[in-house]
Design a binder for these strands. Structure first.
Lengths: 220, 220
DNA sequence: CTCCCTCCGACTGTCGACAGACTACCTGCC
DNA sequence: GGCAGGTAGTCTGTCGACAGTCGGAGGGAG
């Protein structure tokens, strides 16, 4: 008797799938910042009950992708200039911790290799805007993962939704300037040298530049 | 016609009130880490429907107060030793950013005064364990607030639930050693001097000591 | 023409019920 | 005595419906 095929059964709950669908719809730009997300419409469109959509929306609200407006109505979030500046300062602190812990680890060279693979993906994204975004964020989350500190990853992910709406609030035409291998290589090099102050300075500057980028010429 | 009294109407939703009640029940120790939180039991005890309790529980799950166990059943969270160490390293990074921004602000002396008031509350808590916990966490969240970076506060609060279950997982008898005015004063003094490297070192050491404290003699 | 009142539509808040899944126990057979 | 199979109980997952509230359109009075 054969035992191979039997495709993996999807054991995820409906709520999880709806959550992923909505998150994807927002981060892909199908819903723009400010758009109203009505429970009834979404439930009808997804073919599930309101309660299920509701739970997914509440989850996205805590992720910062969605925010409550008048009368509890939810809409796609968009950050103010001050929030964006603060966001990138927090990211600088978190990713500064990440490089600190990576440099302190014995398997630093393995981390460097993994990071190089991440920038290669960024280089391979070409002109595909969505792929560039994924590769860029993928590099930074990988940075956190390689620190070996799950709580750091958790904290970083808590900011991810806010970053994604910020990215989506801009014109895709002018964003690629930020997401190039050249901007990320210095971080890896400093880690490889074991140059902690240098790595911290590079991360700091990387985030400051990103903050400037996303706070100028806002809203498309 | 008189216009004064008319007590403020509570416009909070039932879900918000249930959320606060459950959060309070956990952080006060009524439910211990590992305890199972059944939707039916809670709904019956609170006199609300399961759906409402469910939403509150999901919120607490994202806060890290509650975690999913077998078959989606939720129980009060408890952190491993590694998670606790990582948690306090992230806190060190965040609160390090806080002191950095406070020192850079022009109204630094006002922040110092506010922080002194916070440690006074800690001193006035006496032997009341719950009051000491509130005053201690109050000091640190105040530190973040005074940075003027709302995103920093948001990130810190995201860790608050995990800290609270960690605190609650220990014997109240031996915790007070951590939460004394003497342990917090050096932070304020370094800020007052404008001594950034000194302040960072103090915060770092404060968090390392706290991590050691909460990873030794675990579980009561 | 303007202002106010009323009615209508839409949306979220909350609830109770049904269904599916897993656990633990209990019984009968080997 | 031990193990397989069945069975009851309990928990979460999901759904549809009712109710309350807010905003706006529309009509009538001044």
């Amino acid at each position: 008797m054969s035992v191979e095929p039997l495709p993996n059964i999807d054991r995820s709950t409906l709520r999880e799938r709806v959550l992923r669908a909505l998150r994807s719809a927002i981060t892909s730009g199908a819903y723009r910042p400010g758009d109203h997300l009505g429970e009834v419409e979404l439930a009808g469109r997804l073919g599930v009950s309101r309660g299920t959509v509701r739970e997914a929306l509440r989850h996205l609200q805590q992720e910062g992708l969605v925010t409550a407006g008048n009368r509890g109505m939810l809409r796609v979030n968009s950050l103010s200039v001050e929030e964006i500046r603060g966001l990138f300062r927090v990211r600088a602190a978190l990713e500064g911790l990440a490089v600190t812990e990576i440099i302190a680890r014995p398997d630093r060279s393995a981390a460097v290799a993994a990071l190089r693979a991440a920038v290669d993906e960024l280089a391979g994204a070409g002109d595909d805007f969505a792929a560039k975004v994924e590769a860029d964020l993928g590099f930074h989350v990988r940075l956190c993962e390689l620190s070996g500190n799950p709580m750091l990853v958790e904290s970083w992910r808590h900011l991810e939704g806010r970053m994604r709406v910020t990215i989506m609030n801009r014109d895709p035409e002018e964003a690629p300037a930020m997401m190039t291998p050249g901007r990320h290589a210095p971080i890896i090099e400093a880690i490889e040298r074991g140059d902690l102050p240098g790595a911290l300075a590079v991360v700091e500057e990387h985030m400051a530049a990103a903050a400037d980028h996303f706070t100028s010429t806002r809203a498309r």
